[in-house]
Nucleic acid binder design. Structure first.
Lengths: 237, 237
DNA sequence: GCAATGATTGAATAGACATTCAATAGAACG
DNA sequence: CGTTCTATTGAATGTCTATTCAATCATTGC
């Protein structure tokens, strides 16, 4: 219920952009910096994709959600397509920034770095209903899958390389029978699948349980290094 | 390049419906049974969703793909929405029929029944680029996710119950530390994630490798009952 | 053959939407 | 203040698309 600030970049977590009310506030700026408007529009686009899907996301709805006028969409973004791509880039960037910070930390062990990657997948900022809607909107439409690849492929590849490197090192200290490459592919696929679960059935699948599932698998794969995380459910499932 | 039969239900695997040419063929029936036309239109819809996404799938494109005239779409289906739902129902039905047949077999062990469920996920008829496009098209759009739930939720739930039952029994003969419920949720999530991999990067992810990944996990979870399937890649990855 | 029935066609209609643009409002700078 | 520049507005435009429907064609039962 916090009212988002009028100035500065819109907080990406508080996805419910409260339209700026031109009521009694004297200092409602009519013109704003381009970067502010772009951020507002991207935020509104995320909200609209979550509510209506990409095909239901019209520029009229986006600008209304942002509390701006229709014409601004094409003023700040060359086309609707560009707006959508920038929205995906923003969401993918948030995810990347998160795991990169952990991976680049010099104080963490490989084990903890991989755990940090898991955390990044299921961090509320990245793994909210709205953000997941954006990812899967691009997965779901043939045309947008191409956009997805051109926008996110490098980021995905970079993370996958990093995962593989970490798993390889972790595997070196354990005696696993499975190929590290396969292991990291399996773990990433599992996380994607858990994302889908959370998107489809948000009431039944939670971030915490998802993280547990991945950690359990790690414990199974590398029993010497990862503790078994909560072996049985407590019946309150 | 095989020409699809003019009569009878269109083969759902041969998704490329060749428009019936009214050239020299004397026996080109103008009128057909409703069920035939419906099957044709559903087949063409699958093709269009794979090519253009749901929002790019117009009735004009569908009927053209089917080699029929525009008006037929609304004659055989009350609305575009109904056509899309029936298309999803068809695709989901193919999958269900496949695993149900295996599960109901009285000659198979629980272990083999679960392996059959895995097979059903990665059978070419179910796990083709086109069919995956349909699944993820419905996952990807907010409005269509509701449709997905109303059309497929029961089928999904039924399969999940069955998976859980099988895993529980398999677990009873092994000494696993992990809760069977979690195990079956994890396995299903993994298969969903592998589907997504195959949809996004069809050249890099194959059905066979995907099956291997799931089987490897089973071997890790239940080492007494499942053999370790091909422990290392042979370098030709 | 001859209705009668049902399937098929494609032009017409109405609504939705991205994009354009001329007009306007505000800020910055002197 | 006046001038210039930039952001903003929302009505207008043209395109695309689902849906309708009157006319046409094929089949079936008699």
């Amino acid at each position: 219920m916090t009212i988002s600030r009028i100035k500065g970049k819109t907080d990406a977590m508080t996805n419910d952009v409260v339209p700026v009310r031109p009521v009694a506030e004297p200092k409602v700026r009519r013109t704003e910096d381009k970067s502010v408007r772009r951020a507002q529009l991207i935020d509104a686009t995320i909200t609209c994709i979550a509510k209506f899907g990409i095909s239901g996301t019209t520029l009229a709805k986006v600008t209304e959600e942002a509390g701006l006028s229709l014409g601004l969409a094409n003023f700040h973004f060359a086309s609707k397509e560009v707006l959508l791509h920038e929205t995906l880039r923003f969401v993918a960037g948030e995810h990347r920034d998160r795991w990169q910070k952990a991976v680049q930390s010099t104080t963490l062990s490989d084990k903890d770095r991989f755990l940090a990657i898991i955390e990044s997948f299921f961090h509320p900022q990245v793994c909210s209903r709205k953000k997941l809607s954006v990812w899967f909107a691009f997965f779901g439409e043939a045309g947008n899958r191409n956009a997805y690849r051109s926008v996110v492929e490098d980021i995905d590849e970079e993370r996958h390389q990093e995962s593989m490197r970490l798993i390889r090192r972790i595997a070196a200290e354990d005696d696993t029978a499975i190929d590290p490459v396969m292991i990291s592919l399996t773990l990433e696929a599992l996380m994607d699948g858990l994302w889908l679960n959370m998107l489809l059935y948000p009431d039944e699948f939670t971030r915490d349980v998802a993280k547990q599932q991945v950690r359990q698998l790690l414990a199974l794969m590398f029993p010497r290094q990862f503790p078994i995380a909560i072996p049985k459910t407590d019946g309150k499932a």
